[in-house]
């Protein structure tokens, strides 16, 4: 009886694992199967023409470039907030500090806040300041979304920097400000991983940019113009009645999936490289 129970649950567990991995496989197959025939050189080099939602000509360049702008801007903005916070709670504050604990907790909690809430918040800010949907608004909303991820994942590595290293630098007469360079050097692979993770989240999120960044068929030339993004390119064009427009959505889904896959692999590569060289 015990042997049977043991075996029964082991089979169940393996089945569960296979189901979960199988669903990943199914998702990838579905996206590739539908997206690959829709891919063409025009898709990645041309902006759509003939009008939003109905125009059959052209490609996705507006969304690809738009997503890049948005990700670049929001990552830079996120880092400007996240790096000082991580340095402060790991270098300036003592090991057991209430402020550090509560900062970590709040980053965890903010990480769980859905992106639609950040979108709604960004929108209410923009209404207050009288702004229209724009690249700028999108950058703010996405930066809010990724800052907690940046703080949390950089903090994980910054916590592991040995205290001795900091003490050694302090005993040589360095100020805490001067230690920052030592710590940053130690955690630089961790920073890279954090950036890759947050780019993955930023490039794939649709709900936060829906209100704030808007959508357009052209490539923005200033921060105050609306901007197209890959997730919204999928979302809007999928509901079009016209086959060619729908194809663009599937092609965008394939491109987005490939980008996210590459980012995830790169993040894993960097973090494994880091764990080998840990002191």
């Amino acid at each position: 009886m015990r042997k049977f129970e043991e075996r029964f649950f082991k089979v169940l567990m393996i089945l569960a694992t296979i189901i979960i991995l199988g669903s990943l496989f199914m998702i990838l197959v579905a996206v590739v199967k539908r997206g690959l025939p829709a891919m063409s050189w025009d898709m990645v080099t041309k902006i759509p023409s003939g009008g939003f939602y109905l125009g059959k000509e052209g490609g996705l360049l507006n969304a690809i470039v738009g997503s890049l702008y948005l990700v670049l801007g929001s990552t830079v903005l996120g880092l400007i907030i996240a790096i000082p916070v991580v340095i402060y709670i790991n270098v300036y504050l003592p090991k057991k500090s209430f402020l550090a604990d509560i900062t970590r907790l709040s980053a965890d909690v903010l990480f769980g806040i859905p992106s639609i809430v950040y979108g709604a918040f960004g929108f209410s800010l923009m209404v207050y300041f009288g702004l229209k949907t724009s690249l700028f608004g999108g950058i703010i909303a996405v930066a809010l979304l990724i800052t907690p991820i940046l703080i949390r994942s950089m903090d994980e590595v910054a916590r592991l920097v040995p205290k001795d290293l900091k003490d050694a630098a302090l005993s040589l007469g360095a100020t805490r400000y001067e230690i920052i360079r030592v710590v940053l050097k130690q955690i630089s692979p961790g920073i890279t991983t954090a950036i890759l993770l947050s780019i993955g989240r930023a490039i794939g999120d649709a709900a936060s940019v829906l209100f704030t960044a808007g959508y357009t068929d052209s490539i923005p030339t200033s921060l105050s113009q609306p901007v197209a993004t890959l997730p919204l390119a999928i979302f809007f064009q999928l509901s079009s009645p016209i086959q060619e427009v729908q194809d663009r959505a599937y092609a965008a889904a394939l491109i987005l999936t490939l980008i996210v896959l590459a980012l995830s692999l790169a993040a894993r590569f960097y973090s494994s490289k880091f764990s080998k060289n840990k002191i």
């Binding site: 998702i27 579905a30 959505a249 999936t257 996210v260 896959l261 995830s264």
Partner: peptide
Amino acid sequence: ILAGIPPVVYGV
């Protein structure tokens, strides 16, 4: 990888 797939792709 599963964790990284964007919501909109899940929707597709």
